[in-house]
Simulated scan of single mutants.
Amino acid sequence: MVPEVHDEDIRAAALQYVRKVSGFRAPAAHNQEVFDAAVAAVAAATAELLDGLEVRGAAPARVAG
């Protein structure tokens, strides 16, 4: 069975990824905009991936909301 993935899960994973690759847990004010944009881009790419996956015999991977 494929576990349900909610929008909050996707955003949390995106935030963790951006923190890891940037080396910043919380960016300085002058980096906040680009940091937030990266989180949004990673989250969108992840949602697109999950929405496009087809797992035979399983429920949808992602539940919006």
Rank of each mutant, 00 (worst) to 15 (best):
P60M: 01
R62C: 02
Y17N: 13
G57Q: 02
Q32A: 14
D36C: 05
K20M: 07
P27I: 12
V21P: 14
E33P: 09
R56F: 10
A12Y: 10
V63E: 03
R62W: 02
E4C: 08
D36W: 06
L15E: 15
A29W: 11
D36E: 07
E4A: 13
A59H: 12
A64P: 01
G23P: 14
R56A: 09
E4D: 13
S22N: 13
D36V: 09
D9T: 00
R62N: 01
A44L: 11
G65Y: 01
G52R: 08
P60R: 04
F35N: 07
Q16V: 06
A47K: 10
D7G: 02
D36R: 04
A37N: 08
A38Y: 05
A28E: 12
A58D: 04
G65H: 00
A44Y: 11
V55G: 01
A14F: 00
A26M: 15
Y17P: 04
A28P: 10
G65P: 00
L53I: 11
Q16H: 13
H30P: 03
V18H: 04
T46F: 04
D9N: 00
Q16P: 02
A37W: 05
S22C: 12
G23S: 14
N31P: 02
A45K: 09
A13Q: 04
T46N: 04
R56E: 11
A28C: 08
V34F: 08
A40D: 14
E4N: 13
E48N: 09
V18K: 07
A61I: 03
G23Y: 13
H6L: 12
K20P: 02
V2C: 07
